[in-house]
Structures are given as C-alpha cells and as structure tokens.
Design a protein around this nucleic acid. Structure first.
Lengths: 230, 230
DNA sequence: ATAATAGTGTCTGTGAGACATTATGTA
DNA sequence: TACATAATGTCTCACAGACACTATTAT
C-alpha cells in the first residue's frame, strides 16, 4: 500500500417493510474476497478510478449497479475507520441509510432481504463490522422517526393511516397513539406534504380507510417541532 | 496512485466564543503543499502508517498535535468526497465539529482564531472546500442547539444564565427568550446536569447573577423533547 | 344485529413564548 | 434616589397522550 492512501468504501443499509410490517435489510452475496460467498451489506470501493462525481453519487451507484434499486430516501449516517475492520488493512467505510418501497423486487439470486431483527441480535452474522453499521443506521432511523416523517418513505406514496402507523411503530420500536399520528399527518397536510385523494380502501372488515398521498419535498423529510414519546 | 486506495483526511471545525460573544474558528497555516502558507482547517491524513486506533482517535489527534487543544465536545459531522476538492486527486474528508473552552490559549504563530462569520460569508477564503465544511458544521450546530444543551460547551463550566443565553443565541443565530432558557436549565438541574453553586457574580451594574455549574455526562449533550423557536 | 376497524372529540399535562412584576445590586 | 440587570410569576397556545365515543363497512 502506498504511503498516503487508504482503502475506502461506501456501504448501504437499505431497509424495506415486508407484508408482516417488519423491517428487512438488503444483503448481497459477496463475489470476491475477503468473505467471498458470505452475505454482506451492498457497497462499492471509492477511488479515483471509478469516476464517481461525489460520495453521494457513489452511494447511489452502489444500490443501482448491485441491486438495481432506486431508494425513496437516502442519507449518510457516518464514517467508521480503523485498522482491524478489514483484513486488508486500515480502511474506511462511509455508510448510508436507504429506505426503499415495500414492493421493491429483487432480480438476482445473489440479493436477498433478510429480517433486520435477526441481524441486529446477531442471529444472522455479517462480515467486517457490518452488524455495527446496521445498528448505527437503525439508531439514526429511530431517532429521526421521533421528530420527522421518515417512516412514510417505507410505505407506498398512496397510503392509509393504518399503514403509516405500522411504519412509525416499527421504526420506533414501540406503540404510537393513532391520534398522535393523525395530528402530525394533519399538520403535513396543511403544508402540502400530504393530500387527501378522496379515495377509499375497503378492507375485509370494518370501516373503509381514507387513502392519503405522500408528496415528499426535495428537502428530505418533514420536521416536527416536538418529539413523540417524550 | 494505486488502484484501490484514496486520499483520506480528517478535518476539524473547532469553534470558540470570544469576549464579544461571537464565534471564532480555529485555523492553521499550512506548512506543506498544496496551498502551503494559507490558512485552513486543522486536519491530518489517515492511513495505515499513522497508527490511529480509529477515525475518532485521528480527529482527537489532529487537534492535539496541531494545536494542543482538548475540545470540550466533539462529534463527527459528515464525510465529503469527490475528484476536484483536492488537486492531488479523488479525496475524502471526514470532518468534525469541536467546541472549545472560551479561554483556550494558542501557543503557536501558525494557529489563529478567525471570525466565523468572515469565513461563512467568504470574506475570509479557505482552500479546498473547507468553507463548505465549515458551513455544514455550523448548520449541524444550529440544528442541534434547538433541542440540546450543546451551546453550554462553549462557555465555562461555571457560568451564568446571561452567558448561556449568549451562547445559545450565537449558535442559533437569533434571539431566545431568557425565560425559555431558564426553564430548560431548570430541567437539566433536575436531571443532575446542572448544579447551583450558591455563589454570585457581581457585574458592574445590576442585580448579582447566580453562578451555575455544568456537569456534562459522557452521553454528550442533554436532549430536550421539544425544539425552541418552533 | 354483531363484530371489526376507522375516524373524531374531549380532557389533561407539559413546555415554549410573551410580557409584567419583583428583587438586588451600583452610581 | 435613579438606574441597570437578574430572577420570578402569569397567561396563552400548541401539541402529545390517553381514552371515550361515533361512523361505516362485512358477515
């Protein structure tokens, strides 16, 4: 290794909500050493040869070329670096949190969505320090879910209050009063972030649900001025 | 440059409050090319040769070695990377926000505290994309100052409400009701983050001030459940 | 009718915001 | 005394939280 350079990668913690309202994480079977054939976070090396315009562009590229996925939301979480996380030597990883639509398909056998909880409690082991990165990304998601509309990126643009409630609860890891969520959705409606479609969804039983539409602004997520679960 | 590696550095945005209650930023006169002799953010290269235990350790080292400063608070802000920010090629910079005590001395002629506002509005130009990094770090500080006790790290451990008010206002960039701040300090007092010393400070005019003491916990900063300036 | 689920209304508590009032020092 | 500044008190408003109540469908 030359004197001034270091091994740097971008890794993605991409989350999706399954039909049981639980979070799954996107993993890829590594093609190359180290840890070939093992399931790991999708990622790419960044260096001058892979003409990425920026680090964010590299993150987008990682999801696009490895999994053909365009996330509905993506943000940089942090960068970790030390001498032991990669057997090849001192290395850096800048990792991102990505939220993808619930119906996102996977075209490849080397890609899979795995139960996030299995990764978090180490029943499903990951190479490198990827389990740690996943934990940090989830902490970020939980923290931001208390005062932003982030969980809405995990459900369809056209959604019901019940779906939104499930998304918030799985992000936060605890129950949320539906009246609290309705109040927040109402405030987003006043700011044009949510519109009432006028349509109804008819479940098997019970009163039909109003169908809302999420109109996310480029500024990422709606920010409330208080935290839920104070 | 070898194929898999990249130039990576850690840069520090270290802020101090001066006696006019304005923020200053620590700059260092670069000894080496590129941009030798110019004022820039203190930072170090990270790679396998400089046995840093971790990225955070490298950040601490950067302040310690370059400026002999131990910050009262430090957190990673983000990592930027692209092909043009450094003339030497594709490079990464992980940058940190550091808050240092108001009486921090500088022992070196190649170190200086410069008015933060001059850097932010480009009257004082910085090399690389350092001005952009400074702007991002300040945004982080302002955002966190609405719902945490971060500004307290800019004043002495033993402080008065007036000093705390000045710190919050300069971090937020706008006026804050002193009653609001008193309420928040009261809540911190109940959680053991602040204690009443019983002493008084006697200014030239007016009623004497109670002297409080900030007892920061290792968990970084006190988090309030609402934002100020809603 | 009954069950099931959606949506609304009511009441309480907390804390920010604005402003008035009192307290305690110096000149 | 007048003045300056600190500290406290009062009132309003917004919103989370808890829970009751009403509404609308299927069976």
């Amino acid at each position: 290794m030359s004197t001034a350079e270091v091994l740097a990668s971008v890794d993605i913690v991409a989350l999706r909500m399954n039909d049981r309202s639980q979070l799954d994480i996107l993993l890829i079977r590594r093609a190359q050493a180290p840890f070939a054939q093992q399931w790991a976070l999708p990622g790419v090396l960044v260096n001058g040869l892979t003409a990425d315009a920026s680090l964010d562009a590299a993150a987008t590229r990682a999801l696009a070329v490895k999994a053909r996925i365009k996330p509905r939301y993506m943000e940089q979480v942090a960068t970790v670096g030390d001498a032991v996380r990669d057997p090849r030597g001192w290395s850096l990883s800048t990792f991102y949190l990505a939220l993808v639509a619930p119906d996102t398909p996977l075209g490849d056998e080397d890609l899979s969505f795995v139960a996030l909880n299995a990764v978090l409690d180490r029943r499903f082991a990951l190479p490198f320090d990827h389990a740690q990165l996943v934990a940090l990304a989830c902490e970020r998601l939980a923290a931001k879910s208390t005062y932003t509309s982030l969980p809405l990126y995990l459900i369809s643009q056209r959604f019901t209050v019940t779906e939104a409630l499930a998304a918030f609860q799985v992000c936060l890891g605890q129950a949320v009063q539906h009246t609290t969520l309705r109040g927040r959705l109402e405030r987003m409606k006043q700011h044009g972030w949510i519109v009432e479609t006028g349509e109804k969804n008819y479940p098997k039983m019970g009163r039909p649900q109003n169908v809302l539409e999420h109109r996310p602004q480029p500024s990422a997520a709606f920010v409330f001025d208080r935290s839920v679960l104070s």
